[in-house]
Design a protein around this nucleic acid. Structure first.
Lengths: 342, 342
DNA sequence: CCAAAAATTTAAAACGATTTGGCTAATCGC
DNA sequence: GCGATTAGCCAAATCGTTTTAAATTTTTGG
């Protein structure tokens, strides 16, 4: 049913009907109510594409999804969806072309210049991220989830990775650990760099030399967690503690530790970063996993919120949000073993 | 840049330009090439919303995402994205309103009647699914991922859950297991029912009585896997084998088994369904997990493909695809222990 | 070289809403 | 009771494309 048809059935002009439905003040309360009721009854709904054309708004927020089906992603989107519920704004997920998305700019270009979305969210930025520069040059609204070191002003939301990992590492040092390994995220991403920094600063603060052989960078998978942990454990002296970037990595580390006949929490301490998943919880692992913790879902919800503010006219320079991260100690961390190591 | 402006810069009419870019035959090869080149050079891109309005096509496939951030979802979408890459079709993810989405029909209604998407994918249907009836009545193109028992003809793609679980259960029986527990998915969903059936049929075939106290239905989380497994293991006699609905469930079962001082693969056999995740693999678990296996990502890619066919005019009645499921035996399954049980 | 046919190109009419500016009727202040 | 204000409604322009129908140019055949 079209507006024209619907309006004539009501004996009103398209103008009045349109205004009534959009809640403009120049239509009487009585007619507004009648229009609203009849719209439901007759099932009239404005053609979204006509609305988009005339208003110039797309009614959607764009997100580019990497190929490497990351498990964080679903949680983040789920959080966005939670916030966007009832807003008549959709989430547009755009397929990424390249396997390792070295150059996502063309994708953003397509998304943005064709008018598909009103804003985009940029994930896992690099310190000098070309996507940010591009979107800024275009004057297109965007929110960065994570941080960059670029000079161009932009809205961002991030968790305090540096402090989280610094505290986690410090805690391990407090427990007497001296050889602490770190299995971090993909090289080159700011969040990995921040975590690196937190780790190194904690070591330095306590006079423990940094050993590059104890640090790895890659995707967050249990397999890589296992492999890196295995190879670290083969060193002599071997590390007595691990700081891990994700829950999946932690699973791999647990396996690696066990496979060497060692016990997590006694021989080897582990702290991982937990994005809070409904289907896999740090508390339930055996032994329960000490973790730096921050809800990815909450971040998604808040990101959607901030994008809405951005679209509402709030200046991007104003939107900077750094979330603190909890450190929750459980059974996977304990005093460094005193005895000599294999 | 608008079409009109772009066309005048080329010294052509909007019509010719539009045709040149869409590859219509009534424009000479020479001008087509020139138009294509200039479009790139000047950065002209048609306003997608104008295109949508006039063509009536939305250029997007809709997906409704449940609140309970399911980890399968990201893989499925990632597969869709893979197939849709280069097609100029997006994935529109719509927030679900209710927590347990008992009534998703209004959401589909909004998605469909407002012209946001050209087709939708319905996930985890129930045997008599109101979403399917609704979409069918509207005459709107849709693909069901999973199966339903409704009479209305519709396109679907599914994996052979029944046969997979029947074979898994049979295999356990072959190994001498008699008390086999099953931790299945949400009650009421067809895939859960199919798995139930496969399980029961396998038992019946071999004259093993069905014991409802050995079956559970719920979401796929490691916590629920743990809890159900714990409670099953408290029974006397206790089960000697588990069939599980997901990798996360299997993680929980492993923990529960260990927490009772038992050993997976020796005291307790486990087979789970593996949707194939890049970040968590059955092969790498300890002991490696025997699994029924089918790639969720591949299903997503194929689903996108089928939707494209549907939109291309292929009749829905023709599109029925039942994928076989591999059964991969690893170390988590072994002969039933002979000795008496606690 | 010319009429007819074929190959290109174009002007103008959709698509279905929002919004500007104008019009009429009701209300107000004095 | 009357001009001025306001409330409520409407006609028509607009958004940026695609596509229909028509016009123009080029090619063809005799």
């Amino acid at each position: 049913m079209k507006l024209k048809e619907f309006a004539s059935q009501l004996g009103l002009s398209p103008t009045t009907v349109s205004r009534a439905l959009s809640g403009y003040p120049e239509v009487s309360e009585k007619t507004r109510k009648r229009v609203a009721e009849e719209a439901v009854r007759l099932g009239y709904r404005p053609n979204i594409n006509a609305v988009r054309l005339v208003t110039g708004r797309a009614g959607a927020i764009g997100v580019i999804m990497g190929r490497t089906g990351e498990f964080h992603f679903a949680e983040f989107m789920s959080g966005m969806a939670e916030r966007l519920d009832g807003e008549d704004i959709d989430i547009l997920v755009s397929p990424t072309a390249d396997r390792d998305s070295t150059d996502e700019v063309p994708l953003y270009s397509r998304l943005v210049t064709s008018g598909r979305v009103d804003a985009v969210i940029v994930h896992s930025p690099k310190p000098n991220d070309e996507r940010i520069a591009f979107l800024h040059d275009l004057g297109f609204p965007f929110l960065v989830h994570g941080r960059s070191e670029t000079d161009v002003p932009h809205a961002w939301i991030d968790i305090d990775n540096e402090s989280a990992i610094r505290r986690a590492t410090s805690h391990l040092i407090d427990l007497g650990h001296k050889r602490i390994a770190m299995i971090n995220g993909r090289a080159g991403r700011t969040f990995s760099l921040h975590r690196d920094k937190g780790y190194r600063d904690a070591l330095q603060e306590r006079g423990i030399p940094f050993d590059p052989r104890l640090v790895a960078h890659d995707h967050f998978t249990d397999e890589l967690g296992f492999r890196f942990a295995r190879s670290f454990l083969e060193q002599s002296p071997r590390p007595t503690a691990f700081v891990a970037g994700s829950m999946m990595t932690a699973l791999g580390i647990y396996r690696a530790v066990r496979s060497r006949g060692l016990v997590v929490g006694r021989d080897i301490s582990v702290i991982a970063h937990d994005d809070v998943f409904p289907y896999l919880t740090a508390e339930n692992m055996v032994p329960s996993l000490s973790a730096t913790r921050s809800s990815m879902r909450a971040a998604g919800a808040r990101s959607a919120d901030l994008v809405l503010q951005l679209l509402g006219g709030r200046p991007a320079e104003e939107i900077h949000e750094l979330w603190p991260v909890e450190l929750i100690l459980r059974e996977s961390t304990g005093p460094a073993p005193a005895e000599a190591q294999s």
